[in-house]
Simulated assay, not measured.
Amino acid sequence: MVLNAKNPKNYNYIRTLREWRAYKKMDKKAVAKALCVSESTYTRMENAPHKISIGNAVVLSKLFGCDMKEINFFE
């Protein structure tokens, strides 16, 4: 996790998909269902987040209740 560098008083953290999923206490199956993909496809997304489409990124940010800027897609 990285503290939001633009506004140090903003306690929103930048997290990876795996970290957001754990923070929200969700399993891979639930996230995959929200994205309308298989669990194995979602696992590939977690392993290669830079390949996620903008549409899926929007769904993930809504699902996790965060801004897209708070998800690290470039781990």
Rank of each mutant, 00 (worst) to 15 (best):
L3M: 11
N4E: 13
N4F: 10
A5G: 11
K6V: 08
K6C: 10
P8H: 07
K9Q: 11
N10E: 11
N10Q: 10
Y11H: 12
N12T: 12
N12A: 13
N12M: 02
Y13I: 09
I14P: 02
I14E: 12
I14Q: 10
R15W: 03
T16E: 04
L17F: 01
L17S: 01
L17T: 01
R18Q: 15
R18I: 11
R18A: 15
W20Y: 06
W20A: 02
A22Q: 14
A22S: 13
Y23C: 04
M26L: 15
M26A: 08
M26S: 03
K29I: 13
A30N: 06
A32M: 06
A32F: 06
A34E: 12
A34N: 09
L35H: 08
C36G: 12
C36M: 14
V37A: 01
S38D: 12
E39S: 09
S40A: 09
T41F: 09
T41N: 06
T41M: 04
T41W: 05
Y42T: 02
T43F: 10
R44V: 08
R44I: 05
R44P: 03
M45E: 05
M45Q: 04
E46K: 01
E46G: 07
E46R: 02
N47E: 15
N47A: 15
N47I: 03
N47H: 11
N47Q: 15
P49V: 03
H50R: 04
H50S: 14
K51A: 10
S53A: 09
G55R: 05
N56T: 00
N56V: 04
N56S: 11
N56Q: 10
V59E: 05
V59D: 07
S61C: 10
L63Q: 02
F64D: 00
F64S: 00
F64W: 01
F64I: 03
G65R: 01
C66D: 02
C66K: 00
D67P: 03
D67Q: 09
I71Y: 01
N72Y: 07
N72V: 08
F73A: 02
F74C: 10
F74T: 13
